[in-house]
Nucleic acid binder design. Structure first.
Lengths: 337, 337
DNA sequence: CGCGCTAATGTGACCGCTCACATGCAGTGC
DNA sequence: GCACTGCATGTGAGCGGTCACATTAGCGCG
């Protein structure tokens, strides 16, 4: 009731409690050598004055901001959104706040701008979550004095990163289709500038080649529309394609709609494999066979690595995760054409 | 190459440029009365030392943090994620950074903890985006000295908020079904603690009553699973229900799957109306008739209101938005049972 | 030619906190 | 009984900026 919060400082509290400002500081920082009785007196004074420690002043002297930057591409997508959320919660547990900066990962200017922005804000570490390589590379190049953890970027020894084995996952997805007897398989890719998309594509191509099959490629961009448009226009009969592996679940959703419109039965005539296992995937028509990504776990792990590094831990190791394959009803034996 | 960034201060720069620290400060703040030649000399020195202004020091003296807090419920969901993203971009344009704090809106402790956390971080204003009322109420109660903008909370005169006319929207959705001849309509609600969910429910109930029809209610919680479970277990034949209005699109997705499994034809036997128009909605089977929410626009508007208030503008007015109805293929004339 | 005025720059205090160090006072050992 | 230790507390400096004000130079003008 008395004073407006944020208006009183440790000297006001000290005076009211009848101690020195240093003792107040000790109470704030839960220093051991303060008599319980004294501590209580200070706490009471703080409560009465609605004292809120001035973060800027602490930061100024300790040069600890307790801020972690997150450089992210589209945080609207399910994957990044979950990851960022998990990071925030994990950071909070360690007393850190997160500052998210969204950028277009294809724009060098935005990448540099975002990094510069985070740096000026004084972040103690940065997590880069994009499916592109470039942001992580630039961040590491520019931010030489603070730790950088990359998610879904090309692994390089000595750097901190949480990576998913997209090559292996795409390979397994492809193999799944091949073992069902499919021979002509189409892959609808993600954007060509995306590292992750390229890994998935490479896994697909390599597996097809290994089986002496010709990899068929259609260029997509992660979007539902891309899946729909390709599904609507592609000549399945002429090409003899009996299965499609899409770069993500959204693309698969668009593709499934096109199939419905063209009366292409899934999986009887066409098998479809997605990637991500978004919450909706199991409710598609038919329920989608897909590679499951644990986005929250990935975000959590990345933040944990960063926090450990910040805490001075030496032996922090990069992670390389394998994915679970969710076999549902959108895939089946190849039809006899 | 020379010094580590963040290591030099204005005095170092001043010395190197042969000016006083105050002149350096003037250059940082683009003060008019600095000779172009002097300015350039200072800029060169800053570049050479890789000088980065210390945000904490500026904040300490100006008591301007340039930070805006966002108190959000589940930022993983499509709606909030889009809104928060739009807010961040809008804030950045005005030189502000956003600090997102995720909470469980049903926990009083988490609400208070989140608010206290933002306050300690020194935010200059807060946007509350939850579908619950409580967080906004508590935020306004506690944060008396900074502006608070609420999204999707009960409107109260004199307070800043961006609201969607859920009552009207639910009413129109219901009316749409009624005008198709449906008489027995089921509403699957959102969580009972959610203000928004209750508004939608109230709009449904009022419209049914106005048409002398009995409102049928099933309790949901926004989730796909809720829609699926209710769709799987509900006795459509016994009850004679021919249409369902769901609290959001996810619930509708679950319901549609259940219908498929039970061979309940949509819209021939059962019409379904959703709410939100998530990107996937038009790709459901069948494409979903739903109320469209412009989440990004809502976030943008809320941030704009907050920024205007922070800039000292007096006449900032709350918004009350009407929604567009997207009629697609999941609704049709009531069947003759 | 000296007055006032403005543009460009410099000086020192201070924002609120923590740090290193100083002090006071009990308890301990010989 | 006295130096020695260690706990509880106090003192003053300084983190890196900005603010208010002081100072200097340059110029028009009566």
């Amino acid at each position: 009731m008395s004073a407006k919060p944020g208006k009183s400082n440790i000297y006001d509290v000290a005076k009211l409690a009848g101690v020195s400002h240093q003792t107040v500081s000790r109470v704030i920082n839960t220093h051991p050598s303060v008599r319980p009785e004294t501590r209580q007196r200070v706490l009471d004074a703080m409560a009465e004055l609605e004292f809120v420690p001035n973060q800027a002043a602490r930061t100024l002297v300790t040069s600890k901001t307790n801020l972690i930057g997150i450089l992210a591409a589209d945080t609207t997508l399910y994957g990044p959104a979950g990851g960022v959320n998990a990071m925030e919660i994990e950071a909070r547990r360690a007393g850190y706040a997160t500052l998210t900066c969204s950028i277009n990962p294809s724009s060098e200017a935005e990448i540099r701008g975002g990094i510069e922005r985070l740096r000026r804000l004084g972040v103690e570490g940065v997590i880069v979550i994009t499916t592109h390589n470039r942001p992580a590379i630039v961040a590491r190049e520019v931010l030489t004095d603070i730790p950088v953890v990359a998610i879904d970027a090309e692994y390089s020894p000595g750097e901190l990163s949480v990576d998913v084995d997209n090559l292996d996952a795409a390979s397994r997805a492809t193999q799944h289709l091949i073992s069902f007897g499919h021979r002509k398989i189409l892959h609808i890719t993600g954007p060509s500038a995306s590292f992750v998309a390229n890994q998935r594509r490479a896994g697909f191509v390599a597996t097809m080649r290994r089986n002496r099959l010709k990899p068929l490629i259609a260029q997509g961009d992660w979007s539902i529309e891309a899946g729909y448009n390709i599904g609507r226009d592609f000549d399945f009969d002429g090409s003899g394609v009996t299965a499609v592996f899409t770069a993500n679940d959204s693309v698969a959703l668009g593709l499934l709609k096109a199939c419905r419109e063209r009366s292409i039965a899934v999986p009887t005539r066409l098998s479809v494999v997605g990637f991500d296992d978004i919450p909706e995937a199991g409710y598609f028509d038919p329920p989608l066979t897909t590679m499951r990504q644990e986005f929250r776990a990935i975000g959590h792990e990345a933040m944990s690595m960063l926090l450990r590094t910040l805490a001075g831990e030496r032996e922090v190791e990069s992670e390389f995760l394998k994915l679970d394959f969710m076999v549902r009803e959108s895939t089946g034996p190849a039809p006899l054409l």
